[in-house]
């Protein structure tokens, strides 16, 4: 996993509530057995005017000029600004894979769906919850200023706006530690191998029907 420490990133505003993972990456792209290459199909149904299928040359497809990701001023954005309940619906990790593959490293929203939120951390993508009024303010500032950038600093858990306003965000110690180090979580868990085995023996003795 890519480590995350600090980022000065261009912000792209996606002003819709309840953006679901079907919208983030439609089902036809889930047939892939790989975990990379989803970026060009991020928000496929909103981003292009035609119907997308795996294997198409996306560079030849007609772009929807009204979709924010296609606005020249947001090209290369690394911070996605979103509304309530971002990432609801399907558990597909292809959603964070597509965001990360497109170049996003941070998503800021008033709330996230639980599974999506959790999946982000496994892929070096930092989801940040901010109060609705802060998100509103960021949307306003982003609309008013072309080239609007935010500084996101994980060690100090802060977002800093171009005018120097600072907003703090929460993250669990475990997630912070993994993101900062870009750590393999399985490797970390396997340090507890003896504990897992001890638990398993006790569990088997209590509920033998759970084991074949």
């Amino acid at each position: 996993m890519k480590a995350f420490t600090t980022l000065d990133g261009l912000v792209c505003p996606l002003d819709r509530a309840n953006v679901d993972t079907d919208a983030i990456i439609p089902k036809q792209f889930l047939k892939s057995i790989k975990r990379s290459g989803f970026g060009p199909n991020l928000f496929d149904e909103w981003r292009y005017l035609d119907h997308g299928e795996p294997g198409m040359d996306n560079s030849q497809r007609p772009l929807n000029p009204d979709f924010v990701l296609n606005f020249p001023r947001y090209a290369g954005a690394q911070v996605l600004l979103a509304r309530e309940n971002f990432g609801c619906g399907s558990s597909r990790e292809h959603a964070p894979w597509a965001l990360e593959d497109q170049g996003f490293r941070v998503v800021i929203a008033p709330s996230f769906a639980d599974i999506f939120f959790n999946n982000c951390y496994k892929n070096g993508l930092l989801p940040i919850v901010q109060p609705a009024e802060v998100v509103d303010q960021l949307f306003r500032e982003c609309a008013a200023t072309e080239g609007y950038m935010l500084n996101v600093d994980l060690p100090t858990q802060t977002i800093t706006t171009p005018s120097g306003k600072v907003f703090a965000f929460d993250i669990t110690e475990h997630r912070k530690h993994c993101l900062l180090g870009g750590l393999d979580e399985i490797g970390l868990t396997l340090k507890h191998e003896a504990e897992i085995k001890a638990f398993e023996s006790k569990h088997r003795a209590a509920q033998p029907w759970l084991f074949a």
Binding site: S91, E93, N119, K122, N123, I186, T189, L190, E200
Partner: peptide, 16 residues
């Protein structure tokens, strides 16, 4: 509950 693919791998490898 539902999990993502990284967690699928985590459960496969560690049962947790």
């Amino acid at each position: 509950h539902g999990i993502g693919t990284s967690e699928v791998e985590h459960v496969m490898a560690t049962q947790t």
